[in-house]
Amino acid sequence: MTRLWFLNRWVLFAVVAGGIAAFMDQDYYYTLLNFIGIHTLLVVGLNLLLGYAGQISLGHAAFFGLGAYTSGILTATVGVDPWLALVAGLAVSGTAAFLIGLPALKLRGYYLAMATLGFGIIVYIILNEASDLTGGPSGLSGIPSLSLAGFAFNTPRRLYLLIWILLGLILYISANLVNSRTGRAIRALHDGEAAAESLGVDTFRLKLKIFVWSALYASLAGSLFAHTLNFIAPSSFGFMFSIKLVTMVVLGGMASIWGSLLGAGALTVLPELLTVFHDFEMVIFGAILMAVMIFLPRGLVRGILDLYENRRYKRQGGSFPV
């Protein structure tokens, strides 16, 4: 395959992200970009589960919260090294996902939606109620910043470096994954569980794996979130945030790695751009969810591309060159 190197999306990603790092000078924009990065992490993870594997989670904010609070409590209260706390967060979230997934992934459709939703609400309530541990509704403060070899990620600009380098890696890993043997099996179980089984795919095990994997992304995002804000409160991890994540997946496009960046970006920037957005937030999120799902079920960009592609298939009598 002959491809011009500068058309490679990874090079493009690095150049754009690096360019921003070199030329932008306002902290505000870095802060915004950092939230886009954290949200994208979450959305890519959820997209692997929802878009690729076809398994819904309406409680993904819980894993985000578990990551954030494990990091927060271990560093601010116990005084553990932040990186170690981050790994502990991964362990906690991964274990929680495994324990919930084990029974829940035997269920389908609505039941799975309800089980994940119930789990999300329970975690949210615990974050609020176990105030000895979590600080309760007023939150947990004094979370230190991450640092690497004496370089503290304590300004928006420095955090930007950390978050976006990590994001680049995660996007790369995720794109690899969906085009690997396991990734194909995951997409296969979405399209036809019986057919996948008939080819030797252990669909239940695979669902469980991708559920845990997806929770790890959320946990990583949560730890970064805690160390970015140095303060966390339960309100960031409620049911509405789980719904926002689903909206980002749907807008960016189910089963689209790069769409996740788009969906997270758009729905993070939009509320900032429109100050009136705050009052209309729910109306807009609700309307996006419904409209995209009804009219462009493959997401905004792909939906529009599909309209074009369909024309092309028709014009060529149902075939096109490889």
């Binding site: 890993i173 995720s174 690899n176 994954l177 690997s180 043997r181 396991t182 990734g183 794996k209 991708i210 994997w213």
Partner: peptide, 9 residues
């Protein structure tokens, strides 16, 4: 190849 091997290529 498993999930992690595939992700890390």
């Amino acid at each position: 190849s498993g999930l992690i091997a595939g992700a890390l290529q």
